[in-house]
Every structure is written in structure tokens, then in C-alpha cells.
Design a binder for these strands. Structure first.
Length: 127
DNA sequence: CGTATGACCATGC
DNA sequence: GGCATGGCCATAC
């Protein structure tokens, strides 16, 4: 099986905490500099047909537009975790976006952090 | 091995 | 905001 790549992708996705979402591109960047968002999408799609990897919170991976890619069910799961979508079906990535993996964990497993610099760190608090 | 396809993304209009 | 185009790379056929 050539799951090395997919396994790493799943591992990163498993590290997205509940109530937060990451984009496909974000996950790709964390897994490695040569990984593309398309591959992350492929890895998620593979879960549908064959899921050798349990406990992968695939619903927390959405596209860069802040919208879900797989239909209403995914959005439903995220709303159960506390996310809020507007009328157009998009969510606020500034508010619910993943900040990146824990630095120590990332270093230990050879993953990258999000170069981001996002600063303002609005850090929820929404309530 | 060539072509088509995809749970994507950035850019341009 | 929406729509079209090109690029990306692994899989499936």
C-alpha cells in the first residue's frame, strides 16, 4: 500500500480540534512543502470508498472559500461542533480557521507549521 | 503508457 | 460577489 502520504495527511487531519476547520491547502502545507491541496482532497475522497483509517474528522477540512465541498451533511456535522455558516453557505475562516498543529508535535513528527503570521489572533472568544 | 478525472487553488475578467 | 482558465499531482481505466 502506498499509504505513507495518505497516512500523514490523515494524521494531520486528526489533529484539527473540534470546532475548528482547516482548508485543503493548509493541511497540504503542514504535511509537506511538496504536497498539494489536490492530494489532500484525494486522501479525503479515499475515505469514502475505503476507510482503512478510522477516526479521521474529514468534515473539518473545507475549501479555501470557507465552504464545504461535499454537500449539506458535512456542513451539518460542523454546525454540531459549533461552527456558524452564513446564508451563502460559507464560514468565517478568521474565526474558525485552524491555527496550525502544536509546534512540539509538528517538530516531533516532521510536519511544518503554518507560516501564516496571522497575528491579530482573534482567537474566538465568540463565546 | 496516455488520457481523463477529482471532497483544490490562484488569478483574471 | 460570480464564472472561466490554467496549474497542480495521484488514481483509475
Amino acid at each position: 500500500m502506498s499509504n505513507t502520504l495518505y497516512s500523514r495527511i490523515y494524521e494531520v487531519v486528526r489533529h484539527i480540534p473540534p470546532g475548528r476547520v482547516a482548508t485543503y491547502g493548509q493541511v497540504a502545507l503542514v504535511v509537506g512543502p511538496h504536497v498539494t491541496a489536490q492530494q489532500v482532497g484525494e486522501a479525503m475522497a479515499a475515505l469514502r470508498d475505503d476507510s482503512p483509517e478510522p477516526s479521521v474528522p474529514w468534515q473539518r477540512v473545507i475549501n479555501a472559500q470557507g465552504k464545504v465541498s461535499t454537500g449539506r451533511y458535512q456542513q451539518q456535522l460542523l454546525e454540531q461542533e459549533g461552527l456558524v455558516f452564513n446564508a451563502k453557505g460559507s464560514t468565517d475562516l478568521q474565526r474558525f480557521g485552524w491555527q496550525g498543529p502544536d509546534p512540539a508535535w509538528a517538530a516531533a513528527h516532521g510536519f511544518s507549521l503554518l507560516s501564516h503570521a496571522a497575528a491579530d489572533a482573534p482567537q474566538l472568544d465568540l463565546f
